[in-house]
Every structure is written in structure tokens, then in C-alpha cells.
Design a protein around this nucleic acid. Structure first.
Lengths: 345, 345
DNA sequence: GCGAGTTTATGAAACGTTTCACATAGTCGC
DNA sequence: GCGACTATGTGAAACGTTTCATAAACTCGC
């Protein structure tokens, strides 16, 4: 297959009998060129099948038309919903998203950040694995705009869009405590993820708020926030002697909860009668689970839209842009997995 | 925030006391430069924090380091698993993926293809909405490599990686017929999606193979392959008088099946006793559903890996590359949603 | 210590745009 | 019919790389 020699702006110019500058003007500021010429150039463009080369434009302009989105796990519907939000906003602005999956692996995260930097993206939306402030600062210093996603920025110099994870943990735990549970398991990890820590801290706070203590909450750390990790954690919980075993489980996300639920069901542990279960994120599948899952809902799509919006604003109006930390509030959605079914009462 | 003047290959050259050509050589063919010089250049690179500009490289070389992936629905775990497979392969090759979500909308699909063309991507992996052969041909003629994903190419000139959807439909339907069902509903759409048509055709074929006819299969067309569309379809099915209502439902994918299941459960229709249910894709959530879902499994991740592999091969060794149509075989995974539970028998 | 060969480095051209200072031609008021 | 505008178009420089023909400096064998 012979590489077809691509047609450039120069070919278009020749074909239309104008200069290259004029063709460029037709493309970028059509209003300043006389309508007759404009029509002629446009005709030449379609006739030759000209497609502008974004690399050349980018080289000249300094930055490209893409932005990077770095998430912890593509397979997690939470992130795909966020991605959808991002895409809503960028698509409307004619920009493209380079989608990167760090998979919770610092090496991959760094590799992708390098790559995005080489692409001279407009900016990066990232849910970092750890605080990584050094790395992110370096990015910023090189002119790459950064917006933290699902993570609150500790400093004023960076935009961030997040959900109040402490509050979310608090809501979940308060609900369990009010349902009478006193031996509760927290499933989540790795601990270096801020979301996990915050949700745990929130849970603890609800506990002490109710006059209970740290010994009412047993923590099961997982290596990742996945269904498989949830299954493992459930096995560990069930390894406890029945009399001291937790009567309720709060999982740091829905995937963990679904994994946990699978194991419980398979072992004929009744949910919620024997063990109550609460997840986090309220992904669409939570409601469709074996036992519909109580979960803490986050505005996933809005998270993405807002983050992309902040980035675009920073890119397009740097002079008026003020960095801001947007924090959404989560909401507890109670379903069957955490409350006795009424018909049985 | 002042745009930091980025450091270029020329700055590195000056700093290291060599020519720009040499720096470029260090970057691209380190073996041909003397190790002392190489070390000096490398030192200068880290010292100045030099990051190569991929746009410039791309401009010179003709094509970039990215490829496009266009899917029908980001929110569908089937596609995120495929994407993960793609990423496995491209990541290892140091390439980036521009992830595009056509959302089943032809306008969006076209917009993204334009954008990818302007980016001068190495190639495009796409699950097209319709056959769109004209559009894809134009792409090919302009030197953009195309690999069809989850869709068999009708012509020899294009690589494709797919799963035998007719066979999948056949497996599902044969299973239901053998379980004694005679009034079966097919839920799926839109009809212009080839996957949907093939799965339906396969189902029909199993039916006639069993000596039954088209009137045993009632079709419920959906506007999309989503959970919400599944809920609507279920409502329509339940709108039928009980005596003529289907006793089994075959859904063109798992999202539809999960939506259907939700409605059935909420209406206290027992699955599988009152209505049996079979899905398609065997996404991870199928096994974790309210009633574990019988489904037709596809090698999702391998689909992505293979497609990306073919594209890279075509890009790197165009002379030896032969276009091929890879077709995987699906596999029926029987779970509770389609068979009476033994303990009840 | 010379010619042939090898290794290593150089510098300029080219890639396809955008941008900007400048040229040209037309319009207007008087 | 002149000066001052305005509207429109031009052409070359610049962006940061890669590549390639060529130069310079070594290394041999004799």
C-alpha cells in the first residue's frame, strides 16, 4: 500500500490560486477573507480532500488540541462515568481526550505523564495514586495545566474537583450504627489512596460521634479496589469465628462490595440478615446486584464535566482564571443490602 | 503564571557543546554516538529538564505515536475490557491511545474520525456503527490504517478481529430450546448494529435447526444496548397477557439483560422459574447480578490485544503484513438465570 | 608516515502550519 | 484627483524535530 502523498495547505493554495497565508486565514479567521476567495479556497479543500495537519499547527502554536485523563482503573464504572462527563465537555469544545489508565501503578502513571508531556497536551486531569505533588508541580512549572480529579488539592495553586469522602464515610457508618451494628468491618485499600483513607476516617468519626470506639471497626486492607480484591477480603472476614465476626461490612467502593457479596451469597450467608453490606460510588450495577446494594452516591458525570470545564477555562482565559477547589456532597442511597426486608419483619 | 519557555533540542546541544544532530542521535540511535558524548548529552538533558516535542517529531516523520480507538459505549464494561486489552499492547510499545466514544451516534463517530485524521494517528481501531465502508475506505486511502473491532470485515483489504456472533446467538438459543422453552423473546437493537443482527440470525437458525419456526421468537427492538433500554423492553414484555407471554428472554448484551432482570425482580417475576434469562458478553457483573446471569462469553481483552497487535504489525512491517480476519469463538456460560435451581427440583 | 577504512560529529534542508510586517488596490471625502 | 483610510492578500520567518550528505578525526597494515 503506497503511502499516499498527503495534500498540504500549499497544494490547496496552488489549486485555488492564492497564497498559503490566505488558506490559513480561511481556516482560522474566515471573516477576514473576501467571500469570493473564501469560496474558491473551500472548494479546493474539498476537491483535494485536504485534512489539516494538527502536528504542524501545534508546533507553531505551542500547544495541541488534546488533553490527558489519567484514572486509576478503566474497568471501574465510576471512572468511565467520570470519563463520559469529561468527554461531554471536551467534545463540545472540539478537543480530544487521551485516556490513560494508571491501574494504580506508579510506574505506569509516570510513564503516561511523560507521554502526555511530550504530546504537549493542553492539560491533565488526574486522579493521582499518591500525592505526587513533586511530579505534578514539575508538570505545572513546564506549563502543563493540572486539575485534580476526585481528590482535593491541598494547595490553592491547583484546581481540584472532588467529593467529600469523609462525609461519605460518615454517612455510611452512621447508617450502620443506627441500624444497631456494633462489630463492623471496613474493607478497602491500598491505604495510600487518599479516598480510602478519608472514607475510613469519616467512618471512624461517625463511630466516635455515636459514643463508640475504634475497636468496633476492624479494618481489612485490600491491594486494589476491585471485585477480585473484594472476594479475598470476604474470605478473610468469614475466616473469623462466628461470635466475633463482623455483622456489617462497609466497602470503600462498589466493586469491593460486589466481590464481597458474591462470596457471602455463595457461602449462604444472608445479606443483610447475617451480614449487612454498604458500598461506595453507587455505580449503576450496585442497584442490579444480587442483593441491591446500599451505597454512597457521587455525582460521577458532573465530576468529569466540572473538571474538564475548569481546565478549559484555565486554558482559554488564563488572565481571569482563579484556581478553585470544587467539593461535591455525597448522598447515601439505602437499599436492601443494609436493611431487613420489610416483608420479613 | 508565565508560560515557561520550553527547552528545545537546540538548548540541549548548546549546553552539551554538540550539534543538534548529535542530540537527536542520542535520542533515536544512541548506539552510533560515542559513549562519552552520549553521557554528556544525557546529562544536559536531565539538567535542563528537556522533554522532546512529539509534534515536531511527528511533523518530520509523517505519523505520530498515537492510535485511535472508537467504541460504541464507554459505559459498557465490554468495551472497557477491550480497551484494556488495547492498552496492554500499545503501552508496551510506548504508544498512546486516543479513546473515542461514538455513543452509537453517527455524527459523533464522524467527528472523531476527522479529529483522528488531523492527529495523523498511526491507525484506528473501530467498532463502526454501520458498515460505513465509504468513510473507512477514504481513511485507508489517506494512509490511515484501519482495524475493525468486534466486527468482521467483509473485504480482504482490511484487518478485523471479531467473535462469531451467529454462533453465539445459536448457542444461547439452543440452550433455551433444549430447556423446553417455546415462546422466546429477543431483546436487542438498534437493528443496524451488525452484532445485533448476527446474534438474532444465529438464534433463528438454532430455532429452525430444532424444527421450530420464526413465530416462536418474538423480537423487541431497543434503541440502544443499555441497562435503561433493557428496563423498557422488560416492561413491554410484561405488558403481554400472561398466557402468550415469553417464558424466556435472550438479550443481545448483558446490560440489556441486567435492566430486564431489574424489572422482573421488582415485579416479583421469578427468574428463571417464571421467565428464564440469557445475556451476552459475560461481563464481570453478569456473575454478580441479582440472579447470576447465563451469558455468552467473549474473549474481550484478547480482542483488544489482537486488534492492537495487528495494527502495530501493519505499521511496523508493512511489507510482510497480510491483512487478516481473526474470528474468535464464543462460549456459553450457564448460570442460575436460565436453569431451575437444583435444590428446588 | 601514507592510503584506505572506520568511527563520530556537523550543519542545513525539510516537514506543514501560523503569524506578521508589508504591499496592493479600492473607497471616500473634499 | 489627492491624501487618508480600509479591505484584502502576500511571502517569508519561525516552531522543534529528523535525516542525510559531508567533513573531520582516528586506526590500521604495511
Amino acid at each position: 500500500m503506497p503511502e499516499t502523498p498527503l495534500v498540504s495547505i500549499r497544494d490547496v493554495a496552488n489549486h485555488a490560486g492564492v497564497s498559503v497565508g490566505t488558506v490559513s486565514n480561511v481556516l482560522n479567521r474566515p471573516d477576514i477573507v473576501a467571500s469570493a476567495t473564501r469560496a474558491r479556497v473551500l472548494a479546493a479543500i474539498t476537491e483535494l480532500g485536504f485534512v489539516p495537519n494538527d502536528a504542524a499547527r501545534q508546533l507553531r502554536r505551542g500547544r495541541g488540541r488534546t488533553l490527558g485523563l489519567v484514572v486509576l482503573d478503566v474497568a471501574n464504572p465510576f471512572f468511565t462515568d467520570v470519563a463520559k462527563g469529561v468527554e461531554d465537555t471536551t467534545g463540545a469544545a472540539g478537543m480530544a481526550v487521551i485516556f490513560c489508565n494508571s491501574d494504580g501503578d506508579l510506574t505506569k502513571e509516570n510513564a503516561y505523564l511523560d507521554l502526555l508531556e511530550e504530546q504537549r497536551v493542553q492539560g491533565v486531569l488526574i486522579t493521582p495514586i499518591d500525592d505526587a505533588s513533586a511530579r505534578l508541580h514539575r508538570l505545572r512549572d513546564r506549563g502543563v495545566r493540572v486539575v485534580l480529579l476526585d481528590r482535593r488539592s491541598p494547595e490553592a495553586g491547583v484546581c481540584s474537583v472532588s467529593v467529600d469522602d469523609r462525609l461519605g464515610g460518615e454517612l455510611a457508618m452512621r447508617h450502620l450504627v443506627e441500624s444497631g451494628h456494633r462489630r463492623i468491618a471496613f474493607v478497602g485499600g491500598p491505604h495510600r489512596l487518599e479516598q480510602v483513607r478519608d472514607r475510613y476516617d469519616g467512618a471512624l468519626q461517625a463511630l466516635t460521634g455515636a459514643g463508640l470506639g475504634e475497636d468496633n471497626l476492624r479494618r481489612y486492607e485490600t491491594p486494589a479496589l476491585t471485585v477480585a480484591a473484594g472476594r479475598d477480603a470476604a474470605a478473610r472476614i468469614l475466616g473469623q469465628p462466628r461470635r466475633t465476626r463482623a455483622t456489617a461490612v462497609f466497602c470503600a467502593n462498589d466493586l469491593l462490595a460486589l466481590g464481597t457479596l458474591q462470596v457471602l451469597t455463595r457461602q449462604h450467608i444472608r445479606v443483610p440478615d447475617d451480614i449487612a453490606l454498604v458500598g461506595y460510588d453507587d455505580i449503576d450495577f450496585a442497584a442490579a446486584a444480587a442483593v441491591p446494594l446500599t451505597s454512597v452516591r457521587q455525582p460521577r458525570q458532573r465530576l468529569g464535566q466540572t473538571a474538564a470545564g475548569l481546565l478549559l477555562e484555565e486554558a482559554n482565559r488564563p488572565e481571569t482564571h482563579r484556581h478553585q477547589q470544587v467539593v461535591f456532597e455525597p448522598e447515601l442511597v439505602v437499599r436492601e443490602s443494609s436493611q431487613r426486608i420489610l416483608t420479613e419483619g
